[in-house]
Nucleic acid binder design. Structure first.
Lengths: 173, 173
DNA sequence: GCAAGATAAATTGTACACAATTTAATTGCT
DNA sequence: AGCAATTAAATTGTGTACAATTTATCTTGC
């Protein structure tokens, strides 16, 4: 009857099998990084509908948040704040400029640098963005303490991820 | 001397200012979702160097992990397992096929479906991937309990994100 | 049996991410 | 001053993500 025995449980026998509950680091990691990946994709998806009325994507919204806190800023400073490089930021900022939300101009003191500043329209958009964070927290539900704890844990993890990355480059064979 | 007073603290005064510690949901959310975004990007970056010897990207590695657990599977089943749609999976799977790690074939029972199966090479790659999760956990350091708790919290958050998303579509004005 | 609707992938178009390279400007060093 | 090394953005090329549409197949109601 089970003609569909073609579908194999491809190995993983000893790892998955008999009460592999305990603490199997191999599977644990998979799940942590995968959970991170999935949660991040979901966040982007959730914001998509909230940000559509503002004409922003989630990364664009993050850039605007950074600028609403401090502007003007150079591309490099923005990149440091958001952990993104110029390859990501340059085209993103050009799209914000095309929407007349920001201005891009060479720093007269150092022509290598490009200074990003808010236009009046960009500064004004802040009002329309105001209700969004509350809306997200509301939709997520749950108590704030839990969300705060999660944020803390993620911050600690980020530091470890950064360390893991640099030790990689430093100790080149 | 401070001629650079051009740089404004763009509003946010009361929010950022005097011991805004308490519990300001607006800023909290920003930081949680942003932390998620940053952590996910960092994970992808960390895996990049680890996976380069295998010729895989992180999403490709996730697909292979799913297949190493259960194969063959349809594109739709993979999408459900990884929370990705055919627009993302189809080109990714074609690249894996080009590397001769998987085979793609129409399901003879239902010609709409495409069945992804592992080639011998694809199944064999599992051995080379074996040490990777341990390496990641090792580099992250910290105790396993902490990482496990974080994974748990992320799982709960994902459910809330899914709920927030569906309630969005359901209750269209 | 067959047309209408439902499903599964593929395709199209837009927007990230990021490594690697290129271009332009500044710093250091002599 | 003059030139090598450094730095800041931009560019190039690859690979996701995902909404919206299209194509092909399947399922139903009649």
């Amino acid at each position: 009857m089970n003609q569909d025995s073609t579908r194999r449980e491809t190995g993983a026998g000893p790892a998955t099998g008999a009460k592999g509950e305990g603490v199997n680091p191999l599977r644990l990691d998979l799940q942590l990084c995968f959970a991170l990946y999935g949660a991040s994709n979901r966040v982007t998806r959730l914001y998509r509908s909230l940000l559509a009325p503002l004409g922003l994507t989630y990364p664009q919204y993050l850039v605007m948040l950074a600028l609403w806190e401090t502007a003007p800023r150079s591309v490099g400073e923005l990149g440091q704040a958001l952990d993104l490089d110029s390859g990501t930021l340059t085209p993103l900022l050009k799209r914000l400029e095309a929407q007349r939300l920001v201005d891009r101009a060479r720093d007269p003191r150092d022509e290598r640098r490009v200074i990003i500043s808010l236009t009046l329209k960009g500064a004004a958009l802040r009002e329309k963005a105001q209700p969004i964070p509350g809306e997200v927290v509301c939709r997520l539900g749950g108590d704030l303490g839990e969300l705060g704890a999660l944020r803390e844990a993620l911050g600690a993890l980020q530091q470890r991820l950064d360390a893991a990355q640099t030790s990689d480059k430093t100790s080149g064979s």
